[in-house]
Amino acid sequence: MAPAFRFRSDIDSLPAYVPGQRPPAGRSAYKLSSNENPFPPSSAVLSAVIDAAADLNRYPDMAATALTAAIAEHVGVDAERVVVGNGSVAVLETVLQAACRPGDEVVHAWRSFEAYPIAVQVAGARSVPVPLREDGSHDLDAMADAVTERTRVVLVCSPNNPTGTVVHEDEVRAFLARVPREVLVVLDEAYVEYVRDDAAVDGLALAAEFKNVLVLRTFSKAYGLAGLRVGYAVARPRLARGLRTALTPFGVNALAQAAALAALREADAVAERCDRVVAERSRLLGALREMGWSVPESHGNFYWLAIRRHSASFAREAAGSGAMVRAFDGDGVRVSVGEIEGNDLVLRLAEDWLALERSRAL
């Protein structure tokens, strides 16, 4: 008898992507586990989705022409430099599949976005993780040292998920000076709208200046469209053309295109909501530090508690108290900035936790 079909042998060894916890059925809880926008869609966005739903029997615009043009105008580039996809993760997957051959290497910081090693392995390449610094930031010197003749792509996440740190313009420029021009550097800026550090890298400027830099952005976070999946890349025209060719046809559905267009028209409202999240983030970080926590300076809509081996138990206690947070067992806990009541609940837990740890140390 002929052997049954099997997928590639390495598929079974893929690390599992663990989504943020959701409240159990029939029970309410604050969901602070997925870095979602706590504000619901505006009436204009909802109306755009309802109107687009009337044509669900038709395929969407495969090139997302109107949305591509609107994004290009919003970020100040030519439309030929923008490529829209089904969330920034899907765009990244296409980048890696188009760039990598079996045996190639992809360098990235760790811990960083947990989809990276999965996407790298599916593309047939090998992850080269480089440890973060003690403060949760990228060690770009060590990442440059990790580049070899087999390296095809380097992933830089800024703000870094889950620690919230940003890379600075000067250090990225020094890094790019060491990276061969045939290596693609991807700047993942999923949380860029929450950045308030004047020294942070300007990914769009670098993508205009360097032929081997590509920027990823998303509508899932600041724009609150996580349920519809819209992301995009900005790169030099040659890179954008190649990426556009490799994307899945009709990858961005009609409802998502309509919602993203409507959201872009509300730039002032989006900025105001981001400012509210940033203000709440500052309050939370200040309160935690006043308690005695050492917390990285976050520039996302979340913060990081480096609890290490106690991460899972902290998350269980939070869930029992009515707040879902995201544990990365052995490393730490990422907490999204959400509703004030949920934020305060986690603050109380963090204070009690620290007091208990101090009493154990006596």
Score class of each variant (00 low, 15 high):
Met1Ile: 12
Ala2Glu: 14
Arg6Met: 13
Arg8Asn: 10
Ile11Ala: 13
Ile11Leu: 15
Val18Ala: 04
Gln21Asp: 14
Ser28Glu: 10
Glu36Asp: 14
Glu36Pro: 01
Pro38Lys: 09
Pro38Met: 12
Pro40Asn: 03
Pro40Arg: 03
Pro41Trp: 06
Ala44Thr: 09
Ala44Glu: 15
Val45Met: 04
Val45His: 02
Asp51Ile: 15
Asp55Asn: 13
Asp55Pro: 01
Ala64Val: 00
Ala64Trp: 00
Thr65Lys: 10
Leu67Ile: 03
Ile71Leu: 12
Ala72Asn: 03
Val75Pro: 03
Val77Gly: 10
Val82Asp: 00
Val82His: 00
Val83Lys: 04
Val84Phe: 00
Val84Ile: 14
Gly87Val: 10
Gly87Tyr: 02
Ser88Val: 00
Val89Arg: 12
Val91Tyr: 00
Leu92Trp: 00
Leu92Tyr: 00
Val95Glu: 02
Arg101Trp: 02
Pro102Cys: 06
Pro102Glu: 01
Val106Ile: 07
Ala109Glu: 04
Arg111Glu: 03
Phe113Ala: 11
Glu114Gln: 15
Ala115Asp: 09
Pro117Glu: 03
Ala125Val: 07
Ser127Cys: 14
Arg133Asn: 12
Glu134Thr: 13
Glu134Val: 11
Gly136Tyr: 04
His138Leu: 11
Asp139Trp: 08
Ala142Val: 09
Met143Val: 12
Val147Cys: 14
Thr148Ala: 05
Thr148Gln: 02
Arg150Gln: 08
Thr151Trp: 06
Val154Leu: 06
Val156Ala: 10
Pro159Met: 02
Pro159Leu: 04
Thr165Arg: 13
Glu169Lys: 01
Glu171Val: 10
Val172Glu: 13
Val172Pro: 14
Ala174His: 08
Ala174Met: 08
Phe175His: 11
Leu176Trp: 07
Arg178Gly: 11
Val185Cys: 12
Val185Gln: 07
Asp188Met: 15
Tyr191Val: 06
Val192Phe: 10
Arg196Asn: 07
Arg196Tyr: 07
Asp197Ser: 10
Asp197Pro: 05
Ala199Pro: 02
Ala199Gln: 07
Ala205Trp: 01
Ala208Glu: 11
Glu209Met: 02
Leu214Tyr: 00
Val215His: 04
Thr218Ile: 00
Phe219Gly: 02
Gly224Leu: 04
Gly231Phe: 00
Tyr232Pro: 06
Tyr232Val: 04
Val234Tyr: 02
Val234Phe: 02
Ala240Gly: 07
Arg244Ile: 01
Leu247Trp: 03
Thr248Met: 12
Phe250His: 15
Ala254Gln: 12
Ala256Phe: 11
Ala256Ser: 14
Leu261His: 02
Leu264Asn: 07
Val270Met: 12
Val270Tyr: 01
Glu272Ser: 13
Cys274Tyr: 02
Cys274Gln: 06
Val277Glu: 11
Val277Thr: 14
Val277Lys: 09
Glu280Trp: 00
Ser282His: 11
Arg283Gln: 08
Arg283Cys: 01
Arg283Pro: 04
Leu285Cys: 08
Gly286Cys: 08
Leu288Tyr: 07
Glu290Pro: 02
Met291His: 05
Pro296Ile: 09
Gly300Arg: 04
Tyr303Phe: 15
Ala306Lys: 03
Ile307Thr: 15
Arg308Gln: 12
Arg309Asn: 12
Ser311Leu: 10
Ala315Gly: 09
Ala315Gln: 11
Ala315Lys: 05
Gly322Asn: 10
Gly322Ala: 06
Ala323Tyr: 09
Met324Gln: 15
Val325Tyr: 08
Val325His: 06
Phe328Pro: 05
Gly330His: 04
Gly332Gln: 04
Gly332Tyr: 04
Glu341Arg: 13
Glu341Leu: 11
Leu356Gln: 13
Leu362Ile: 06
